[in-house]
């Protein structure tokens, strides 16, 4: 009943509800992270000094996490490719891998935070660490959100009724779009905090 409007090409945008909704949500996310990056730039240019990432943070762990997140982006797009071919087992395998990699990202992040806390470094230590903890923390919350979505898709993949639903593939695609966006944010966060 709700999708009857799909039958009217003259009054339908041509992008499915789910995909358009996810893209609009990503638009708001773009504005959110644009604000955070703006704050970072304004504060950094206003600061009298700004540490070099290699001196202040654990760059090897950061690089490892970058590789993990990029890999998870590939595994989720593979899961989409498997779902596209209605390959149930392949989808579960790649989606499971994606979830493993996302947990690995969080574990590595935990080690990193632990190392900093052990050195007595907190968000209040300096403006640099305030930016570091806030930006990576908010990114981490987005990872957690992605884990919730992806694991619910994995759970759904065990029920046949969802594979019969034509909207299931759209959901997998939407979850993928979100996950790639989180990846892109990290692609910019990593050099901004660790390297430059």
């Amino acid at each position: 009943m709700i999708t009857t409007a799909m039958d009217n090409p003259d009054t339908h945008s041509g992008v499915s509800n789910a995909k358009l909704g996810v893209w609009l949500f990503l638009c708001s996310e773009i504005m959110l992270f644009a604000t955070l990056f703006t704050s970072y730039i304004v504060l950094r240019t206003g600061a009298s000094s700004w540490p070099w990432g290699w001196d202040a943070l654990n760059v090897p762990l950061g690089t490892l996490n970058t590789a993990i997140l990029i890999s998870s982006s590939v595994t989720i797009v593979m899961a989409y490719a498997r779902a596209y071919d209605k390959d149930v087992k392949g989808f579960r395998l790649w989606m499971g891998l994606t979830l493993l990699l996302s947990f690995a990202f969080l574990v590595v992040k935990g080690f990193e935070y632990h190392g900093e806390f052990a050195k007595g470094i907190w968000p209040s230590t300096s403006l640099f660490y305030a930016c570091y903890f806030t930006l990576t923390g908010l990114h981490g919350i987005h990872i957690l959100g992605g884990i919730v979505v992806n694991s619910s898709l994995l759970y759904m993949s065990f029920k046949k009724e969802h594979w019969d639903n034509p909207l299931f593939l759209g959901r997998v695609e939407g979850a993928g779009l979100y996950w790639h966006f989180v990846d892109i944010v990290w692609i910019f966060l990593f050099p901004a905090l660790y390297l430059l």
Partner: peptide, 27 residues
Amino acid sequence: NTLVHRVLYTVAFFAAFLMTLPILDGH
């Protein structure tokens, strides 16, 4: 679909102002 592209151009336009003007003020 070009609609998605257009949506993203719109966001890029507004985000550009959101970023440049406060940064200019920061300078």
